[in-house]
Computed example of a mutant assay.
Amino acid sequence: MTQGQGRAWIRRILVVGAMLLTLAFLAEVGTAATAEYRLSRELRAAAGLADDPEVTVGGFPYLTSGGRHSKLTIAVPAEIDGRNARLEAEFADVTIPGGLLPTFTPDTPIRAGHVESRVRLDQKTVGRYMDIVDLQVHTPAPKRPGAGSPADGYVKASKGIVLTGTVPLPTSADPKRTVLISVAADFSAIGDAIAVRATGIYTGPEDHAKADLLPGEEPTVLARFTHTLPAMALPFGVRPTGARGENADVVLLGEADGVTVTPGAFHRSLP
């Protein structure tokens, strides 16, 4: 074999190898996408949703997973109590029966070592619940170098959330008086509801609105920013364990270990 022929064989081997890798990659992606699509469609049908949920099966490679995956995430816009929300569930150490291309039914068991279930509300929706139409929610980043960068994703906290909005403070001289002001607030879960408790007028370093209050008006302002939202059902019936701010969102969440859920239980209204 001449040197030129040897090089030609090497090129053929490389081409064949690249083709096999491409086929394997396409099979990997296609199989995982089919499983995600099937679960998404079943979740939509079972919960009567207007949109297909975003479903992502984590872990690589899918083709040799045997139905066991490191992560499964589900998210979909929904309407709760006539207002916009986002339903989310994030599973770890997941087992899905049915092999590479499982067919889901309302009763298909999905087992997981851990689940975090969430109802996410944007600041506009929370403002409507609280009757503060221009409400802004700001979750301060932790006090450490580089905190709050895009690499951190959502900035999460339950205490010291900055709420800014316009509230009425009428006086005899000005019955229509309003003020734009910021308060610090804590979030918690009371039963199935998000509780917002204003703890003081905010004067810290984060962006905020200042206002000149008259003597005795601070309690009135704090009361306007203190509110318990209506009860909400978390995906898969997980019981709430807390509430927090995540960037400009307000989240009701619940966590549980060693769970088995079914698509039919993705979202049901509270009794």
Rank of each mutant, 00 (worst) to 15 (best):
D152M: 00
D152E: 13
D152Y: 00
G153Y: 05
G153N: 11
Y154D: 15
Y154S: 15
K156N: 13
S158T: 15
S158V: 05
S158W: 01
K159D: 14
G160Y: 07
I161A: 09
I161Q: 03
V162E: 11
V162G: 10
L163R: 02
L163C: 09
T164F: 10
T166F: 09
T166H: 06
T166G: 12
T166L: 14
V167N: 07
P170G: 15
S172T: 14
S172N: 12
A173D: 15
A173R: 12
D174Q: 08
R177T: 13
T178M: 08
T178D: 15
V179I: 14
V179S: 12
S182W: 06
V183E: 02
A184T: 11
A184V: 08
A185M: 04
A185N: 03
D186I: 09
D186L: 10
D186F: 06
F187K: 00
F187S: 05
S188L: 03
S188R: 04
S188H: 01
A189M: 05
I190Q: 04
G191D: 14
D192E: 11
A193T: 00
A193D: 00
A193P: 00
I194Y: 00
V196E: 00
V196W: 00
R197H: 06
R197C: 00
T199A: 06
G200E: 14
G200H: 05
Y202T: 05
T203C: 03
P205H: 07
P205I: 10
P205D: 08
P205G: 06
D207F: 09
D207C: 00
D207P: 07
D207A: 12
D207Q: 06
D207R: 12
K210V: 09
A211L: 10
A211M: 11
A211R: 01
A211P: 05
D212F: 02
D212A: 13
L213W: 06
L214T: 03
L214F: 09
P215L: 02
E217R: 05
E218K: 09
P219D: 14
P219M: 10
T220L: 14
L222E: 08
L222M: 08
A223W: 00
A223Q: 11
R224S: 09
R224G: 10
R224Q: 11
F225N: 02
F225R: 04
F225E: 04
T226E: 07
T226H: 03
H227F: 04
T228A: 01
T228P: 00
T228G: 00
L229C: 02
L229E: 00
L229R: 02
P230M: 04
